[in-house]
Design a protein around this nucleic acid. Structure first.
Lengths: 337, 337
DNA sequence: TTGAAAGCGCTACCAG
DNA sequence: CTGGTAGCGCTTTCAA
């Protein structure tokens, strides 16, 4: 037996309370223009009837659609946390989020076009993606995770420079000099992080020790990179990996090969994912705050909606280093091979 | 300089062509009631003006909203392919898709509720998720990837029994009897696959050789499981892994440990992901057709919309086995350890 | 503080 | 085959 679909409308709430639709609307939107007593009455009745505003109608009637589009390509745990933050921010400001995926057969242009048919108030893009977003200038756009040259597009990201500096300094403090980097491939973010690694090494006077090992984004890449390291005549004593997955896979592989982490080799990841804390050898990791990134991105969009012409600079969040057990003091015996 | 936002409306197209809005609407919807000549003229003008229908208005005005909601929790490559198929189907039928994510802080109920405010015509859920979807009976719902007992919910999935049978038989044909399974953890799908593995073993008269090794969904789990296998006094000669990621990680780990795949041990994965083909040792894998699954799910929803009371059985797709180089004939010397 | 009325952009139904 | 005319459920002036 299928239950009757009886979408409760504003009208219904109005009729049940005896107020007009307009007044009920005011209450629902929490807009000024109603007495506290009226609000209470209306809210109570609305909840009782199970009223939920129709987003389509709301968006159509109001001047601002209050719908924000989000395009994403992958959705690992980091991205899901970003989405978490976006949903939280949207709820708070009574906005709706409509997600659209970039898939193998559906490029960014298609993903955005489809979204635009909802007459979005703004668009948030979760990297990685193109260097220059399409539709820039047509509506407020914020990208999170990478830098964009386009002035009409706001970018929100963690400072990779700072993160790499934290990581390198921590290792230097422990006595390391031979600090390698397993990179994340050829993506925008990976490239940026590799550059930051190099800068951080130079800043610590270790330019001669710069060593970039080809990696990737997934565990399998970490596994391979670790094996490559094992075959090196002279191994680095510490490694900063592109992300936690790569670092953990490398760590695990080292362990199976008989190397001790951190006694033989120290390891640092990026993202401070759940896995980093839960790993067999808890991983030291550069922590980004996805919830903060998301919150900032959302607020930028809101600010743009109110003032489209304003020129915000890129928003840069400072990462922190979460120190766990995968990093340790340099063991002298290792230097003699 | 921000470009002026001038959303082209039906009205504009009507004015530009000299026809009425109603007629233009008919043409845009590809509905009967307009001459071919009119269609051409209108379509040409619409394209020229860059007209795109406003989904909000369309959904509000029509009796069926033509919006289908999709909830997802993870989005690995398999899920992105599912989304691909859904988008393709939606485009074809002039439907719009609105995605909603289940995140750490946002459970299924919230994800669906938010979606419902769009007054969905139907809902598609990409597993894994709850055994019994909420809101069952309120609107057409299809779940893909796992079986649901609820009669008001359609389920679309690949036959795990068939897939495991294909895998086991292939290995048996190669002379293997000691065929183990690295499971995928405790999720609905993982449990179902493990059961199917056991059934397939029994069907081949190999119940005494049933051996389930604790694994998981990610590479790291495959790595660990492989290491566990290495420590076994008597190792299986073949392994069917929960998915390709696990299988590849295991394969790689075996290789580093000096075991040859497939000479020392044969390996089969699930999903026939891109990685399976690209792996160092190309992986034999049980192939599911995500595009087909998606297409079927969408069509079920459509059928439900037209006839809500109809009782469809679960849709089960037959997988195929893609044979690559990770499986080979049993080597006799291995039996003597 | 409240209510009436006019749309938002589209579809649907009805005459011509 | 075509064009007028009502709304869909909501927001938004503008009066009362």
């Amino acid at each position: 037996m299928t239950k009757k679909k009886t979408p409760v409308t504003l009208e219904d709430v109005a009729a049940a309370t005896g107020f007009s639709r307009a007044l009920v609307s005011i209450v629902m939107r929490n807009a000024p223009g109603a007495s506290d007593k009226t609000r209470e009455l209306v809210m109570a009745k609305a909840k009782e009837l199970g009223y939920r505003p129709d987003i389509r109608a709301r968006a159509l009637a109001s001047t601002d659609s209050r719908i924000i589009g989000v395009v994403f390509g992958v959705a690992g745990s980091f991205h899901l946390k970003l989405l978490d933050g976006l949903y939280t921010a949207a709820d708070k400001h009574r906005y709706s989020l409509v997600l659209s995926a970039v898939t193998p057969a559906r490029n960014e242009t298609k993903a955005v076009s489809g979204l635009l048919d909802f007459r979005l108030a703004g668009l948030i893009m979760l990297g990685p993606a193109k260097a220059k977003p399409i539709f820039a200038g047509h509506l407020p756009i914020a990208v999170v995770g990478w830098q964009v040259s386009e002035p009409a597009v706001d970018s929100i990201q963690t400072s990779y420079d700072s993160g790499m500096q934290l990581a390198v300094r921590h290792l230097v403090d422990l006595g390391h000099t031979s600090i390698a980097h397993i990179d994340g491939g050829s993506g925008l973010i990976a490239t940026a992080r590799t550059n930051s690694y190099k800068k951080a090494m130079s800043a610590s006077g270790l330019e001669d020790y710069i060593q970039v090992i080809s990696g990737g984004e997934d565990s399998i890449d970490g596994q391979k990179a670790a094996d490559y390291v094992l075959q090196l005549a002279i191994r680095p004593t510490a490694i900063i990996a592109y992300n936690d997955d790569v670092a953990i896979a490398a760590s695990t592989h080292f362990a199976y090969a008989g190397l001790s982490v951190p006694n033989d080799i120290s390891l640092i990841g990026w993202d401070d994912s759940d896995a980093a804390a839960l790993s067999e050898i808890p991983l030291t990791s550069v922590r980004q705050e996805p919830e903060q990134l998301a919150k900032l991105a959302f607020e930028r969009i809101l600010a743009r909606i109110e003032n489209p012409e304003q020129d915000f600079g890129p928003a840069v969040l400072e990462p922190t280093l979460v120190i766990r057990r995968s990093t340790g003091k340099l063991q002298n015996n290792l230097r003699i091979i």
